[in-house]
Design a protein around this nucleic acid. Structure first.
Lengths: 161, 161
DNA sequence: AGTCATATGTTGGTTGTACCAACATTGGTG
DNA sequence: CACCAATGTTGGTACAACCAACATATGACT
């Protein structure tokens, strides 16, 4: 009569897509809460990381280099710029573009966030050994890579016209 | 200068929480698209599965048995009832409750969805071998279980009746 | 040179999922 | 009886991931 076990249907519990979603819930909760302590959100961290690793870039390039949509990039850059963590400047060589640059304060903040996010991974993967964590990362990376390639069709340019 | 590689920052690519999120994107896209072909959404599938496996139950029990909030359960049951896939009836023994029951049509639909969702898993995990898929499911299940237990502290019932 | 397709930043949406707060009704327990 | 808890329900929030359209600019081709 009663659903006493409080566990999801067996069908779902065996479903990779469902498990990934369920795992994403604590993952997001932990990361979001962790970053919230520093006044940041996930987009902010991703953008700072991209800038730190790849150097100054236009918003469109940053959008392609992260998974942040061009339209969401606007607000993200705004928010980071307000806090002095990045700077937005017009690109003299292409007046359509803004060049976004990480500031020293941004780099400092990023290091803080790195630590923060790092500790959160331990909480997230608490039940797994170091080996298993590596396995998980490897497996997921291959899945993610596969779909990044198949969804993003660079589309052979048809200069034919 | 330019972010030509179109890959996310290395920091993120090594982050379990980020990978889980990125994997959830194609997972959701595939499942959502698949179910959309049958006029269903994920909630509908989860609810039908729960009803099929655990039998008729109140909305609150169903909410606990899936991951669907009590408030979202209302609409989910409504939508399935409109299509004759479930039935909602007042519980004579407890007038607060509605007893939700899956109909034969609901069972038929569920079988269709099972097939649909199953084929989608193959697409999702295309780059992995059968062994690796099992590993992934096992690792994720343990992570999910761990956080299900640590977050939900139901507090031992005084009288389980 | 002029035309046309494309890239860029930006605004202003929409969708889906996961929540939370509050409420009236009912039930169970002291 | 008085009180607290559970249930269904309404209405709302937050956030990420999109999409459409636009003005401006660039570049490529004729």
């Amino acid at each position: 009569m009663e659903i006493a076990d409080r566990t999801a249907p067996a069908r779902l519990r065996a479903l990779p897509s469902w498990l990934i979603n369920q795992a994403a819930l604590p993952a997001n909760r932990l990361v979001t809460d962790g970053l919230a302590g520093a006044g940041m959100r996930r987009h902010h961290y991703a953008l700072l990381a991209a800038l730190d690793e790849a150097g100054p870039a236009s918003q469109a390039d940053l959008s392609r280099g992260t998974t942040i949509d061009r339209s969401d990039m606007v607000a993200t850059v705004n928010e980071l710029a307000e806090q002095g963590l990045v700077e937005r400047a017009a690109d003299p060589t292409d007046r359509r573009r803004n060049v976004v640059t990480i500031t020293p304060a941004g780099r400092r903040k990023l290091r803080t966030l790195d630590r923060l996010v790092g500790t959160v991974q331990d909480e997230l993967l608490a039940p797994l050994t170091a080996d298993e964590r590596e396995q998980l990362v490897d497996l997921l990376a291959r899945v993610v890579d596969h779909h990044a390639r198949t969804s993003e069709r660079p589309r052979a340019r048809s200069s034919s016209r």
